[in-house]
Design a binder for these strands. Sequence first.
DNA 1: CAGTGGTCTAGACCACTGG
DNA 2: CAGTGGTCTAGACCACTGA
Lengths: 239, 239
Amino acid sequence: MARARTGPEPQYLKVKNHLREGIARGHWVAGDLLPSEAALSLEFGLSRMTVNRALRELHQEGLVQRVQGVGSFVAQLERISATLTVRDVHEEIQQRGHRHEARVHRLTSVAASPAQAALLDVAPGQTLFHSLIVHMENGVVIQCEERLVNPQCAPDYLAQDFTRTTPTHYLLQVAPLSEARWSIESTLPSAQEARLLHIERSEPCLVLRRTTYSRGLAVTWVKLTHPGSRYFLQGSFQA
Amino acid sequence: MARARTGPEPQYLKVKNHLREGIARGHWVAGDLLPSEAALSLEFGLSRMTVNRALRELHQEGLVQRVQGVGSFVAQLERISATLTVRDVHEEIQQRGHRHEARVHRLTSVAASPAQAALLDVAPGQTLFHSLIVHMENGVVIQCEERLVNPQCAPDYLAQDFTRTTPTHYLLQVAPLSEARWSIESTLPSAQEARLLHIERSEPCLVLRRTTYSRGLAVTWVKLTHPGSRYFLQGSFQA
DNA sequence: CAGTGGTCTAGACCACTGG
DNA sequence: CAGTGGTCTAGACCACTGA
């Protein structure tokens, strides 16, 4: 997807880069007023629409603050944002050129406890699917995946072979993703998790919890537990 | 900044929402070909530019895959992305309506060890600034901030009063942010960190490491250590 | 070749801001 | 009021794809 144009650099990108570099070099600092669309149109000899696109995209990227009737300003970068991408384990491991294996420790239906019911926003006692799967990279356990699934959204969940596909992959096919809420924390593993991950109960774990919604319904809740010594998240932020 | 228009919904948003809902409802599923710009122009009675904007923005948001000469497709959402925002501690605590306090335990210059030199991409032995600050929310320690700073980028770093401003805030003023690389992991604290955070050495911590660049130079490296029991990251993903 | 998306123009009308 | 950004049009030319 990276831009692979053969032709010359688009004009709107020239404007974007001009402003981006000016900001990066400190020519304009946070809070400064940038040239207006009209001024940039003249300076670059472009139509206003083209300049507008450059400024609009910088705004979408959070680098520029725009106020109708006033002007465009360099944004206060008090927050540092980055895109956190949570990939499907299978895909992530394969991309590293490694071998992925999964062991299904549990795949059953349960009557929702009050706590479980709250996670998926259903009534206590309602039937839910519950799975517990351990994922291995080249034979080493790196993730323990405990999951609750709303049967309404994926009635055939229990019939899947999760040594051949992953719950994430299956559920995304069955129920198009519309929203997700997640959290990341650091905790000690439960006795069961320690056993499944082959670690001591004293080894810290990176835990990712996520609830996924489709068409306004909570489809699934998942807790992904990783040994802290074998897993971390990373990313970068540009501009 | 949230859209607060008084007038009617813009046309390009109508098209965006139409497509977004179709995807969320499963009318089109991952890999499906969406109507062409020309088709949508006719359907909605809009110019191609307006429809183009709708599709382009959906592409930028990762929901749609576009191939020149072929068409626009519903993207494979194998990855779940979210914007991870790392805020300035001070701002984060104030936003919760709480009181922020900082204690400066170290603020000195050091000769870079080989390991430290590598973090900021300078020569070993070069002078670096080293700070160790503890941040408290309503009197409770929630973050231990260890930082290395390149003196070239912030020569007056040692003269700042970090009980009144934060290093993040100061450095963003002095050296405009152009790039950052970060990682998140779960580890046990060092003896020093445990002491500063008032926790046992057996309590897991959420650790955020980040290197920040300005004008191509590494400005600062920071390690933010949080007690796992008192801190976690969270976020959401839409569309 | 016809159909797609990628870009660009030279206008236009509007809503909003500040003096 | 003049100046700003927000949106929209009806064309245009181009690069790319697949038949």
